[in-house]
Every structure is written in structure tokens, then in C-alpha cells.
């Protein structure tokens, strides 16, 4: 996974609340394989009408927000279905950071595992950012400092305003370092094996009947790759 440290990029004000993962990627597009890319179907039914024509008013397709890599939204972003494809759609479109007052739990976890930063701001700051970005603009999101600065319309010039954001400290470290969970887990192989045999001994019913036939140290084998 790629580390996330700091990003300066065009930011799109998506002034919506409760953007659930069914909106981020409607279910009918989920049969596709990741290799085909999910970016084109991001927020599909909000961006396109029933004839497949772009809706004029949708911020993501507004030329003033072209090339957006940062999204600003209202509360409860990414609620609903656990589909990680919602993150793939954002990522494949080019979005590496979403700024909102709150996030769906599973979404935030999925986001971090794919290198996408869910930056939590106050409701008031979200409103301010939405207003400031209305005509277009760049933001700098600095994960080290947990700060967002408005970088001016072309990304240059003096930072005009500064906002702080929050993120769970563990997720912050994972993003900063680009850690992959499985690499971390492999270090605990011996503890996992110990736990497993103790559980099978003390609560055998947690391994359903047929289960005890299987190779007892499979967890360990799998992780010795």
C-alpha cells in the first residue's frame, strides 16, 4: 500500500449528506472486475440521468472542479453496505482523500486499507470548506500535521485558511507508513497457533463437528508464505 503523507490537489465540494455506499457505486456495477476500473461508475446515478447523460449540475463534472483528488462532503459519508468497491470507485476516479464531519465505520476502515484518507472535520468547517470551494480551488491535506489549508485557485500562493482534522491515531499511522495488515499479522503466527489450540481444547463446540478433521495448523501454514 502506498503511504499517504501530504496531498495538494483540486478539491470538489460535494455538498451532500448521507452519501451511502449504494450511491458511491450502485450494486449493478459490482459484477465487474477491478481490472476494468471502477472510476467511471463513481456516484453514477447522481452524475448521470436515466439516459446516461451527465447531469449538468453535478459538482464532480463541473469544469471548475476538474481533476479533483479531494472530496468535501457533509455528514455520514460512506454509510451503509460494506462494499469495498465504494472505495475502489473513489480511488480509481482519482480521489485520495474525503473530508467530512463523519464516516461510516466500515467505509473508513476500507478506505485506509486502500490508502485513501478519511479526514474528519467539524460540521462548521465542512460548511466553510464547501463555501470556499464553490468556485473551484485547491486544498493541501497534511496527514502529519492533521491540517487542511486552502491553497488558492491554482494550488500556488499563500495558504489562505487553515483547518484541523481528526483521524483515528492507528489509522493515521497505517496511512503514513503504508502498512499492510497481513505483513503485520505474520509476525504473530506463533501466538495465533497457541490461541487456536487452546480454543479448540476449552470450547470445542466453536469448531463445528466436521472441522476437527482438518489440519490443525493450517492457519500457521498459510502465514508462513
Amino acid at each position: 500500500m502506498q503511504p499517504f503523507t501530504s496531498l495538494t490537489a483540486p478539491a470538489c465540494p460535494l455538498g451532500l449528506a448521507n452519501v451511502d455506499t449504494d450511491q458511491l457505486i450502485p450494486a449493478r456495477f459490482m459484477k465487474r472486475s477491478r481490472a476494468d476500473g471502477y472510476g467511471g461508475v463513481l456516484l453514477h446515478d447522481l452524475r448521470f440521468d436515466e439516459q446516461g447523460e451527465p447531469r449538468a449540475a453535478f459538482p464532480l463534472d463541473d469544469p471548475r472542479h476538474a481533476g479533483a483528488r479531494i472530496l468535501v462532503a457533509r455528514r455520514t459519508f460512506g454509510t451503509g453496505s460494506s462494499r469495498e468497491a465504494a472505495v475502489y470507485a473513489l480511488w480509481d476516479y482519482g480521489i485520495a482523500c474525503v473530508i467530512a464531519p463523519s464516516f461510516g465505520d466500515i467505509f473508513a476502515s476500507n478506505a485506509v486499507k486502500n490508502g485513501l484518507l478519511p479526514a474528519q472535520v467539524s460540521d462548521a468547517d465542512a460548511e466553510t470548506l464547501l463555501a470556499l470551494l464553490a468556485g473551484g480551488g485547491h486544498l493541501t491535506v497534511d496527514l502529519e500535521a492533521m491540517a487542511i489549508t486552502l491553497a488558492g485557485k491554482d494550488g500556488s500562493g499563500q495558504p489562505q485558511q487553515r483547518f484541523s482534522f481528526t483521524i483515528d491515531p492507528v489509522r493515521r499511522l497505517q496511512l503514513l507508513n503504508g502498512w499492510d495488515d497481513i505483513d503485520l499479522t505474520i509476525r504473530h503466527t506463533a501466538e495465533i497457533a497457541r490461541y487456536r489450540s487452546e480454543r479448540a481444547r476449552s470450547q470445542p463446540w466453536t469448531f463445528p463437528e466436521a472441522a476437527e478433521e482438518t489440519r490443525p495448523d493450517q492457519a500457521v501454514q498459510a502465514m508462513k508464505l
Binding site: D181, I182, T185, I186, I192, M223
Partner: peptide
């Protein structure tokens, strides 16, 4: 999510 599903498939943790 899918990344976690993969983690469980590989490690049961």
C-alpha cells in the same frame, strides 16, 4: 470489507 475478508481468509484473524 474485501481487504479484511482477504485477511481473514489468510489468517483467520
Amino acid at each position: 470489507g474485501a481487504s479484511e475478508v482477504a485477511h481473514v481468509l489468510m489468517t483467520q484473524t
